[in-house]
């Protein structure tokens, strides 16, 4: 039975590690207790607190799709105390996981619609969960387009999956790197995400746009979408405020009347417009 202690993590074992990009790794995590695995479920958009005893907890989204059961994946960049310690772990190491927390992308409301994903750099993981979710339920959605950019070719994450998405006939993948970040072999586009989006010019009709990326990318992408005719209700993103508790108590992620951990992290652009820009 789940502990009454809100802060008690599930023990999980690292089943696989993939080096995605410099300093960026993906862990595949499996529950150590069958009972935990059975009671656990989540939806795309949710996140958790990943921890190492003696080091602390770090907040990342669940990067795998809820349609793939029995494990979860997380992708993180080594930066602070906890992520540095996580990066030292090996296959077989045990981590703690609390979650799932937060709200979800309302996928069921989007059945029958076109889905446009726009992602930048290390912010692909939250969208990757949705992308696989959508692809696994492919017949429920119309056109699926993914635009993904990073600073350089090396900084692109999920390279093996990008290859797969690029060859699938039931979706369109456009990758781009910032000018100067290309290599001799680079087949994708060169240019910033908002600029590439402008030339792609996806139509707003019956379409939902999911945008995740660094603040500067978001800042320039929203106006492009608006120019293309997307309304604020058709655009979704996730906020990445600092968090500790994940359950709306510690106060760190408070923005206006919302707690990002509890009321987010998924927000429509419309909702975002009513919040103070403290993220």
């Amino acid at each position: 039975m789940r502990s009454a202690n809100t802060y008690m993590p599930y023990p999980m074992r690292i089943d696989a590690i993939i080096d995605e990009a410099p300093g960026v790794r993906t862990f595949t995590l499996k529950f150590m207790n069958n009972a935990d695995a059975e009671e656990f479920s989540f939806k795309a958009g949710q996140f958790g607190e990943y921890s190492l005893f003696g080091e602390g907890e770090a907040t990342f989204c669940i990067a795998s799709s809820p349609t793939r059961q029995g494990y979860i994946e997380c992708t993180f960049r080594q930066a602070g105390r906890v992520t540095s310690a996580l990066a030292r772990q090996e296959v077989g190491s045990v981590l703690g996981f609390r979650g799932p927390y937060g709200n979800i992308f309302p996928l069921e409301e989007w059945y029958g619609r076109n889905i446009l994903f726009v992602a930048g750099g290390i912010a692909l993981p939250p969208l990757r969960s949705v992308i696989w979710n959508v692809l696994d339920l492919r017949d429920r959605f119309k056109d699926v387009t993914v635009l993904y950019g990073a600073r350089s070719v090396a900084d692109l994450v999920y390279k093996h999956e990008l290859k797969e998405w690029g060859t699938r006939s039931d979706m369109r993948l456009v990758t781009t790197v910032d000018p100067g970040g290309e290599t001799a072999e680079w087949q994708g586009k060169v240019g910033f995400v908002p600029t590439v989006l402008e030339t792609l010019a996806p139509g707003p009709e019956n379409t939902v746009a999911l945008v995740c990326g660094p603040p500067v990318m978001i800042k320039y992408t929203f106006p492009v979408l608006e120019q293309l005719g997307f309304t604020a209700d058709q655009i979704y993103t996730t906020l990445e405020n600092r968090m500790k508790c994940g359950v709306g108590k510690c106060g760190r992620c408070n923005v206006g009347p919302v707690y990002v951990c509890k009321d987010g992290p998924v927000f429509s652009y419309r909702e975002l417009q009513s919040l103070p820009a403290e993220y």
Binding site: Y7, S51, L52, F53, G54, E55, G56, E57, K244, C245, K249, C250, G251, R252
Partner: peptide, 17 residues
């Protein structure tokens, strides 16, 4: 005021959150 921090103390072998 109820804001708080969560920190680990000790070593990976023994400690507290």
């Amino acid at each position: 005021c109820s804001c708080f921090d969560i920190e680990d103390e000790g070593t990976p072998s023994k400690g507290s959150r």
